[in-house]
Design a protein around this nucleic acid. Structure first.
Lengths: 210, 210, 210, 210
DNA sequence: AATGAATGAGCCTTCATTCAT
DNA sequence: AATGAATGAAGGCTCATTCAT
């Protein structure tokens, strides 16, 4: 069984994703985690510090994965991008809603300890992503591109597709409950789309037409 | 001078964008709008209803603009996409932060009147955007593409680029205050990137290489 | 009937005197004042600010009285001291427990806004008292004395006598409820003692023996 | 090294004097005493019981000293009063702030075990003080005086002078940091003042003028 | 004997809303 | 129509204490 600290972190991840940071009360958290309200302050100091701890708790894993991709010497750039897409889409669409939390809270223009902590995490991850892209450009495998904006596309598209999954279903007119929109299928659809998008936009057109 | 109702809506747009819905108090709103606290309930019924009113207040304009683009018979599909990009980037990066509010609150998985109202707006807008893309495909100007995901890219990239502007600056190592990152330049950079992205991915490669 | 603000101030004076600042909760205050808990913050901003308001509320009157004594041109110094004693003892032993509150909170060595506000009040009052004493010395009616310490005696004795009234009763072995220890008698006893003390210590011995 | 119980008592004396009983938390105490939070309940049962223990811990010593003065057969009454002043001023102004704690908590009108325990201590001490005064009166060395009130003057003046040391400095317009207001000098000033006050008020005027 | 973990009650404050005018 | 006053509920947090070891 998880210890109380981890129970709280799990609950926080779920509730912050669902209701946002402001919309989640420490009493909600305590109830979900099945611990006493005072425990949150006891373990983390404050609700805000809990958020920061959650960020640290998840961020290490995120960056490690990216670094792993970067270190793969034998992989060609486009394969790395595809790995990145697979990995990133899985992360965001998984039950672990961590990334969504990060990006939402970041979109608030409130400056605070918390905001800075989040920005830092995302910045470091962005840094790893950029390495992959720049390597491809340097090796003349990729066209010369605006790398920072390309990251925004990868991250933003995934986020948007995830957040609006239900809407996409509506747009197509299908029942969201229907088989064709289950998580795995939707996820694969997103992955395939992103890989195609990256290929068409990154690779030189002769390669594309080949 | 704006009437009180509009003052409140203006204030709401600014504060919700800055601090989120939950993070903004009715007192904050009243102060910003320079009206009495009771006014919000008086005019809108509740803070939540105010949000819905804000949505209605802005949504009409948003959709009208999209419909306008769609109706332009003489425009070729790629020009329409470019108009769409120009329009959308301007909207989101402008001082009118309405779109950002919509998308953030949508990312909360709370089902409510409010949520549904927002989803509805976005859905209708997405519908107009899809028309443009599908028309291009039907006219064989565009490759066959996953239209819904392409919308996610347009919307998601713009959102992400806007939210992480400061981060992009950091990533490049420049001072956010420096001239090269002022709003207009950044906006144009985003527009150019998106237009290039759309061209390379939507158009057949022969056209691209032409 | 008192307005709510005054009801709160009255309740605060009573409860702070009884239970101290820390020992009194805003719920206690609200209950005593028969107002909603939120009213305390609404009117005063915080519990601490309420304290400061209480200080201001009472301090003006206190100082005015002292200034009045000082301005009395025809009064000889010893009469002024006696007026001061009458006035001060009445104040402290009266149902208005304000002075006791001030002195207790001052005895805490915590530096805070509150503490400084209190110190300020007391300082200004002490200033007025000293004027009376120094005038007597200048006119050669009083012996040369340590004026500041004399104030400490006037204030400290009154405070101590009030705080330990019950103890004095025990010391004499009388029932605190008995007639001879009712408030008026005890007050007069204190006044007479202080006046005698001041006369013997301030006046030159020839006058005393006269 | 002190054992844990004594460490706690030492910490309690310091913190209660500084922040009052209510203003001091068990965690503050534990931290200051460098023991576990649970220790306080473990050793003393409760915070309140700790206070009572502190009172017992110090009270014995206090009274012993007074009894010692009383038993000095060869000392004349005025010398005893002077010894009493020396002793009392030292106690209250010393780093051992026990007496200040007693008097402050006594000034709260809350009836409790604690309050009664304190009242008892002070009563017994007052009893010893009164003996000294009454002996002087019986031996016709002192004028007939209100002994109980005289105790209030001794105790109250010392308390007041100590609590308002900083204020006296301000009143004189000197820098509290300045040499002339260091602890020793201030203490001596208070002692000299009190001795003079006692002499002038207790002794018959012929003696005074002599 | 000693303690880190855990608790329920209570703290002060702020919330969105409604009332009386 | 418009508002200052007022409210009960809920906010995050700290409290003294007790539990399990």
């Amino acid at each position: 069984m998880l210890d109380k600290r981890d129970q709280i972190l799990e609950a926080a991840e779920e509730l912050f994703a669902q209701k946002g940071f402001e919309g989640t009360s420490v009493r909600d958290l305590a109830k979900k985690a099945k611990v006493n309200v005072a425990m949150i302050s006891y373990y983390f100091g404050s609700k805000e510090k809990l958020f920061e701890s959650l960020v640290e708790y998840r961020a290490a894993f995120l960056r490690e994965k990216l670094q792993l991709i970067n270190r793969e010497e034998v992989l060609d750039p486009i394969s790395k991008i595809e790995m990145l897409i697979d990995f990133y889409v899985d992360r965001i669409t998984s039950q672990s809603r961590f990334s969504r939390i990060l990006h939402r809270e970041l979109s608030l223009q409130q400056r605070s300890e918390m905001h800075n902590a989040i920005a830092d995490i995302i910045l470091r991850n962005a840094h790893e992503m950029r390495k992959i892209i720049q390597e491809g450009i340097r090796k003349k495998v990729f066209r010369k591109m605006d790398a920072e904006m390309l990251i925004a596309t990868l991250v933003g598209t995934t986020m948007q597709a995830t957040n609006s999954k239900e809407m996409v279903c509506k747009l197509i007119g299908s029942d969201p409950q229907k088989f064709s929109f289950n998580d795995t299928r939707y996820k694969n659809r997103l992955k395939n789309y992103l890989k195609d998008l990256m290929r068409t936009t990154l690779l030189y057109s002769k390669k594309q037409s080949a």
